[in-house]
Write a protein that binds this DNA or RNA. Sequence first.
DNA 1: ATCCAAAGATTACGCTCGTAATCCTGAGCC
DNA 2: GGCTCAGGATTACGAGCGTAATCTTTGGAT
Lengths: 133, 133
Amino acid sequence: MSAPAPKITEAEWTVMRVFWQLGEASLGDVVRALEDQLEWKPRTVQSLMRRLVEKGALVSESQGRDFRYRPAFSQDECQLDEGKTFLQRVFDGRLTPFVAAMVEKEEISRDEIRELRALLDEAEKKTSTRKRS
Amino acid sequence: MSAPAPKITEAEWTVMRVFWQLGEASLGDVVRALEDQLEWKPRTVQSLMRRLVEKGALVSESQGRDFRYRPAFSQDECQLDEGKTFLQRVFDGRLTPFVAAMVEKEEISRDEIRELRALLDEAEKKTSTRKRS
DNA sequence: ATCCAAAGATTACGCTCGTAATCCTGAGCC
DNA sequence: GGCTCAGGATTACGAGCGTAATCTTTGGAT
């Protein structure tokens, strides 16, 4: 299989989200996409992007004098990876206790509970019509 | 309200888990509790505990020549806090997409799906018989 | 009385992160 | 032909982290 999704830090997630929206972008594109929601200097954004390239989360291709960058991993891959790491660290790898805590302590809205149930019904239907892997 | 639960790092979670099991412990207790599952030198454990005291996650009380330490926050508090931070960073603060990703991509076991559904049923019953807070 | 082992206090060291600044180069504008 | 501006390359710098070592004190064993 291909390389695993690298560990992405807090600030880097902000940058990656831009790429997952735009698909591909130059430094300027990212700076402009972010300039109204936070006040990072262009050099800061460049640093983050350089580190993301170094750790393999972005790929860069030379386009004339400048570069174009695009994500090396889908948002889904990174989210899943991050999620598993989080569960491992905090909930011994198990999802159920996390959901239980959120539901009990955080007063998740009834809408969200219904959403979740619908989702689980759907999943159960699928696994029941498919042989166990 | 009291101070918010401090940010606990990976290695520190390992230490805190021991305290949540033991309730209260000396340095030696923690060292002995950990020595078979990883090879941390006693000074390493001491460093982690010192930092945990500094950041307010442990409280220490002088007991004769040594100290006894105990957690300043419950495991539930810390887990919930960490969970909310995680969702914020990775899933825009929403639980449902996370569960959806785990269910779709990770082939969560049918047992776990049933567990989750039971949990949600229970929660729904409670919120429906209780006036909104 | 002596010596050891456990634990507190202090210090270390290389890495990553957040947040840039500096320096350089080339492209476009006047 | 200079000036400016964007963007690449290099460097910075303090905080936090992982992982300890060293120095010091002291209670317990012999």
